[in-house]
């Protein structure tokens, strides 16, 4: 059965939207899951089910490892440091917030990903075009997330989504040592989740008691 490319592209686009917009304590987990779910159909259609399983396994591992590392770090004594979810540099008040900037940069990714997927053949002998769009748009949005990062969590989200997107592209291009190489690069997602979970637990912000009105 021929894969439905517009449908695969739409699923990839939705994943890219989540990667661009997601925030909060579990952002790495949600971004990893969205990227894997958005790219798994393309990989399953072009490479096979085992490729899709690798992507989904990486996303699930990211979710579990992030929670575990946060729990372990939370049991250790708190030390001074940067909370992964707090902006490193205080931004000035502006008309557009960080999410708007992310959306604006992600919009630029769409035509670029479309051009690449329809003009650049993949792999050593392939002339297939069009199949790369979901991976290109998710990877591009992950790159934009890195470019516009304000917190350590943004960096972790970008790295996690990038790892899964590049692994999907590797499956589509059938590069050398396809399965093992893609699994290695997809492991960036759990790695990013562990790092951000650890930093959040270790350097968690001290919650001040609410001030009562006198």
């Amino acid at each position: 059965m021929e894969p439905n490319e517009p449908l695969l592209a739409a699923v990839g686009f939705l994943a890219a939207v989540v990667v661009t917009l997601v925030d909060g304590r579990r952002a790495v987990t949600w971004a990893s899951l969205a990227a894997a779910l958005g790219l798994a159909p393309s990989v399953a259609a072009s490479y096979g089910a085992d490729g899709a399983v690798v992507l989904l396994a990486a996303a699930v591992a990211a979710g579990v490892a992030g929670v575990l590392s946060h729990a372990v770090a939370g049991r250790l004594p708190r030390v001074a440091g940067v909370d992964a979810g707090v902006p490193v540099v205080a931004g000035v008040e502006g008309l557009f917030g960080p999410r708007s900037i992310r959306v604006a940069t992600a919009v630029l990714v769409l035509p670029a990903a479309s051009w690449v997927s329809f003009n650049i053949p993949l792999g050593s002998a392939s002339t297939i075009s069009g199949v790369l769009f979901p991976a290109a748009v998710v990877g591009g949005c992950a790159g934009m997330r890195l470019l516009t990062a304000r917190t350590v969590l943004d960096i972790a989200v970008g790295v996690a989504a990038l790892g899964i997107a590049v692994a999907a592209a590797w499956f589509l291009s059938a590069g050398v040592d396809t399965l093992s190489s893609a699994a290695t690069v997809a492991a960036l997602a759990p790695g990013a989740a562990i790092t951000s979970g650890w930093l959040r637990g270790r350097h968690r912000a001290v919650r001040r008691p609410a001030q009562t009105a006198s």
Binding site: L132, L162, A169, L172, S173, G175, V185
Partner: peptide, 10 residues
């Protein structure tokens, strides 16, 4: 990330 993005085209 751009280095790793180049890899599918190599």
């Amino acid at each position: 990330a751009t280095l790793v993005a180049a890899s599918p085209f190599l």
